[in-house]
Design a protein around this nucleic acid. Structure first.
Lengths: 193, 193, 193, 193
DNA sequence: AATGAATGAGTCTTCATTCAT
DNA sequence: AATGAATGAAGACTCATTCAT
């Protein structure tokens, strides 16, 4: 029984259920475009008392962090796999498409991805892990001459958030998503001459 | 007697001065990064009563619209000049750099630029005017083979907002601004093959 | 028109009325033994909105201060007159009876009188003024040999609060008040031999 | 089988230990000047669940009563000894000094001593016992002409609380304690004619 | 008997908007 | 036309008490 995992494990069955419900409702609220995350409302929707929400998440931010930690780690794992692709350019492509999908599905995810400073050290750690994977991929891509020299992992993250933003602003159908991502990918090539 | 025109015409000198002050303060607030736009605060800073603010702008949104209308028209004018450039690609370049500067200086400007629906018909009209100019430029650029065929004026607007977003997320120094805009410009070229 | 008085004067008629109502209700609450001073409740009882209460008194403490300032100054004025009595012992007697009446009528008054540290400088100033008057009286009384040498103005204040406390604890009829005050006055005489 | 007795008797060893811990923590809290007595906090500090606290003490008041009962009985015992002093005035002196020490050490103690009505019959019984001892002492002192005729046991209790209050309001060093108690003792002598 | 998660009424505080002056 | 006091709905958070485990 890992000590870290234990915290989750020893949670009483009903407490765990409530915690999950709250996270679930919060996620739905965000997905529905309501980023106010009112703890009272969430409590009502989750069918628990306000106090229960506050017990699990002392403030709005803690809730957001929890929401993100879940998704982000999951994503970082996938990202690392994608980053190992033999073909660096293809790997980058896959990685970005990957991240974009996540960002489009989860507004909170995009928010973290694109913020300069993190409130929680765990978030920063995960972001660093992600940047490390991207940096490796970029290095290989640069060596292969398929990516311009003046962009770094950090820039990739920010540009991706920009694309996500562009897609969200207006009809965010698949065609636009594909087009905007493609523009980014083409723009990342070393400029002619 | 056009009602719209009358409002502007009959404005007493002091009323006009108050209106200008309110807009000025609101602009400063936004520039200072405070996008809450509390009308009470603005009134205090402008040295007028809240009631006065409400007389001129029935609600927060009206204030935002007014703020934008001012800037936007000014921008559209400049844009039309830029769009007339002989060299279509150079014109596009200038136009985007132009817009980007505005967007970085004025968060509200970027918000309008990137929103799918407008609250005020005048805004839509100006946006249409802008898109018309960009569309012409794009047509010429496409004919010259320097821009991919699958992007429209609307996409340009959205992508630009994306770039603005990327620049704002983190250190928004000149280097990043130039780099991200360049990535966009390169990405807009017709893809190889 | 004195500047100090003006603040009160320029208060709009209705604002002044509301402020007075709030103070009135707060005073009644305290008198009724409820020292929780819930601003919402006070607002309701005063027939004004919560916001109005908050406009006049940003927090509970400000309300208390206002409540006290009113009474205290009024009392200090009277005290100074009483302190000027030719017969020092009689003056002290009158002064204490005087203060006791106030303290019994207004719990807040007693609270300030008996607290070692004040939150508001004005309160400290008034207290100092009071102590000055008492000190003069004590000096004369000591010279006349009718008060023990080891008590100071500060002690008088504290002992009086003690008496007030004793009177409140139980039936606080006039007999008890007279008796306890008399015990104090006798106790203040120089001890035999 | 007396229900009251049973409760004490059948208390399991661990239950008794928990009860004692809770009382201990509550006492410490009060001593530390925190008279909010939050049962959740006490439970945490005592290392038991809230439920356990509630099992032993159905509400905050019951806890207070229990806290006091302990001390009070202990005090009454000592008081009865002190009251048996040959020299009535000396006995009174010792008794009051005695009570004062207790009251200064234990704010709850003073609260009970000075309250007109008790929540628990046991408290009233103990208070009656105390008053009986004091009354005897007073009778003897009056007969000896060393205490005024118009004070009763009840008054002694209340005046003592007054002194305690005075001592607490400000620097409560030994000098002040001695002085204020002395003022009371002198004040209790029969007034000169 | 013990635990501590859950509850939700209760309180504080802010701020967009109205309206008497 | 201007003022700013008043309003009160809305949101954040606490804590005494209950009850399933």
């Amino acid at each position: 029984m890992t000590p870290g995992a234990e915290r989750e494990t020893t949670l009483r069955a009903d407490a765990a259920r409530n915690r999950a419900r709250v996270l679930q409702v919060a996620r739905e609220q965000l997905a529905a475009g309501d980023d106010s995350l009112m703890l009272n409302t969430i409590a009502r929707l989750a069918g628990v008392g306000v106090g229960t929400v506050y017990r699990h998440f002392p403030n709005r931010h803690a809730l957001l962090e929890a929401l993100l930690a879940e998704r982000f780690q999951q994503f970082v794992d996938e990202a690392q796999v994608a980053a190992a692709d033999e073909d660096a350019r293809a790997g980058l492509h896959r990685l970005l498409r990957f991240a974009l999908e996540h960002a489009l599905n989860d507004a909170g995810f995009a928010a973290v991805l694109g913020s300069a400073s993190d409130a929680d050290a765990r978030t920063s750690a995960m972001k660093a892990e992600l940047d490390r994977a991207v940096a490796e991929l970029l290095d290989r891509a640069r060596d292969a001459g398929v990516v311009r020299h003046d962009v770094e992992a950090d820039d990739i993250r920010r540009l991706l958030c920009g694309v996500e933003h562009a897609i969200r602003s207006g009809d965010d159908d698949a065609r636009h998503a594909r087009l905007y991502l493609d523009v980014l990918l083409e723009g990342l090539r070393p400029p002619p001459r």
